[in-house]
Design a protein around this nucleic acid. Structure first.
Lengths: 324, 324
DNA sequence: CTGAAAGCGCTTACAG
DNA sequence: CTGAAAGCGCTTACAG
């Protein structure tokens, strides 16, 4: 360790570099260490540090659909609230799939300081490395397993169904996500209950599903559209905006006018949803809030704070042209 | 190390686990080690392994705009061709910004097996950790610094300008990316040269720029639109589809019909571009090819193969309604 | 073919 | 306040 070239023991350097000199190193020596560090451009070897300490300064965000524009703001917010102390690394499993046990083991071997997991499955939680601070994002019904940040989907759903009812719709097709995440389960359940409460029908059998991919969603919709229309559907709700984009594409190809022939709505309020043809009505899920709150929970967990409570974020309806 | 509980020395376990027993461990002992590993569910501690070996099995993909849907296919392809031997981790700098020197140092301290860097700046390459296998993606003009996978932008640009010329356009507004990546520089230069060659005008002064964010692109376009129209522009090209989505939004708000009043085109051919209002003409940059070729180059670099050559991928024009 | 040992670059009790 | 030393869990020459 070259840094000690400037006078002190190697332990002293470690203490100063980690800001633990308080009352253990003289100000004079501390200053000499800092000078040496500066001159030599020394930076702690995080691998060795992680080995000695048992934990690294890496925080991993796992999401099944990371390239979804939804995560842009989540990532930025997480980075910002984590600050420079931690390094955020992202782990993406192939779109719509869950990380394998092997993936999880390899992540654990990285000794992350913390894990942020979006839309996890129960299976994933069973495999999760024990002892690693863990915060779940968008994982309704799983808050007994770990601190969780959820959206208040119920109120968003209520607003969406009320809006469609007001527009005179009574039968609604539903394009579900094929990912086995709890949040999709909940969206469907809530929509169904709310529709029922108002004497409306949400068409969920046979189930129509797609991974978060516009082309796949379009194909699924094209196949389902005749059935939905035959059942009297005048509107389609998709479990996410990406899926809804596929619905729009399918309607266009089928020669259906939106919203005149059929209304369309989604969840997320992606940036692109304001420029689709037509602009998309959506239940907005604010990603920046999700990221900042989750990161704050994780920080308090890492600092040994008591298990923080679960948080619920607003989910507001944004009405645009696709529902008239 | 509990695994040696099953008979052999700890060195033997290491050799077997790493598949280096060839002619060094008896088949009998090797088998006993494997059995023990299985029973105990042992998995190598990658931190310690990385420290001892000087390198980890982590490959890092750096991209300034990771949540851009463009990267979905890139990531999938990279993961697939890297195989199970390596763990792909993603590093995102805030949208449109470049990683800082501190970021780079912390990545280097991770001792990655390799680095994949998308749309890097020259400054980044100056800071890049020496000795780490490095492959550049979409980095025209930088192939003397490291093996690079580029798109054949020239032919895409030629097709786009030819298409607009054929439609009778002679003056074209240009919305540039504000990221200081070489690829944006090249797109502008090529467009300008090609327009000039055909006696057309690409409006680049004053420069109009935006980060890859629909709202920001819309604002930039709204500010520029009067000037462009006054100069006689009947078309707008954006440096990426995300920017083009902002242009579409701005045109809609200004009451301009696309393509009747003004034609619009972009680069990337994002999935959402087929469902915008109207569907967007775009120079398609196939992300899956980019990812698989780059990963293959990196693998050969890691395996100590000689510096692979630079590759060029096709960039074909996809014509849709936004240009008539 | 096999094992004891040094070393990777840190951190952290533990004596002074 | 300071330093010598053990230890984190592996890998890899090096003797047998």
């Amino acid at each position: 360790m070259v840094a000690e070239r400037a006078g002190t023991s190697i332990a002293a350097v470690s203490l100063v570099v980690n800001g633990k000199q308080a009352g253990r190193i003289s100000d004079e020596n501390a200053e000499r260490v800092r000078a040496a560090v500066r001159e030599l451009g020394y930076v702690v070897d995080s691998t060795a540090s992680a080995l000695a300490r048992g934990t690294s300064d890496v925080v991993v965000l796992l999401a099944p659909d990371l390239p979804n524009p939804f995560f842009g703001r989540v990532i930025n917010a997480v980075q910002e609230t984590l600050g420079p102390r931690f390094q955020l690394l992202l782990f993406a499993s192939p779109t719509g799939e869950q990380p394998t046990v092997a993936d999880v083991q390899r992540l654990a071997a990285l000794r992350p300081a913390g894990l942020l997991v979006s839309a996890p499955t129960v299976e994933f939680l069973d495999d999760a490395p024990p002892g690693v601070p863990l915060v779940l994002l968008d994982a309704p019904g799983l808050q007994d397993r770990a601190p969780t940040v959820n959206y208040d989907l119920a109120s968003g759903v209520r607003a969406l169904i009320a809006h469609l009812a007001e527009r005179g719709h009574t039968t609604i097709g539903y394009l579900d996500g094929s990912t086995p995440a709890a949040t999709y389960e909940l969206r469907r359940t809530l929509l169904q209950a709310e529709a029922e409460r108002r004497g409306m029908t949400l068409l969920t059998t046979p189930p129509v599903r797609s991974r978060p991919d516009i082309a796949e969603a379009m194909a699924a919709t094209e196949a389902a559209l005749p059935g939905w229309r035959a059942a009297g559907a005048t509107a389609v709700i998709a479990a996410s905006d990406t899926l809804a984009h596929g619905v729009l594409a399918a309607c266009a190809r089928a020669g259906l006018r939106v919203p005149e022939d059929i209304a369309v709505a989604g969840f997320d309020d992606l940036p692109a949803s304001s420029v689709t043809a037509p602009a998309l009505t959506s239940v907005a899920l604010p990603g920046d809030l999700l990221g900042s709150v989750a990161a704050r929970l994780l920080l308090s967990l890492i600092e040994g704070g008591e298990a923080p409570e679960t948080h619920e974020l607003p989910a507001e309806l944004v009405v645009r042209a696709s529902t008239g």
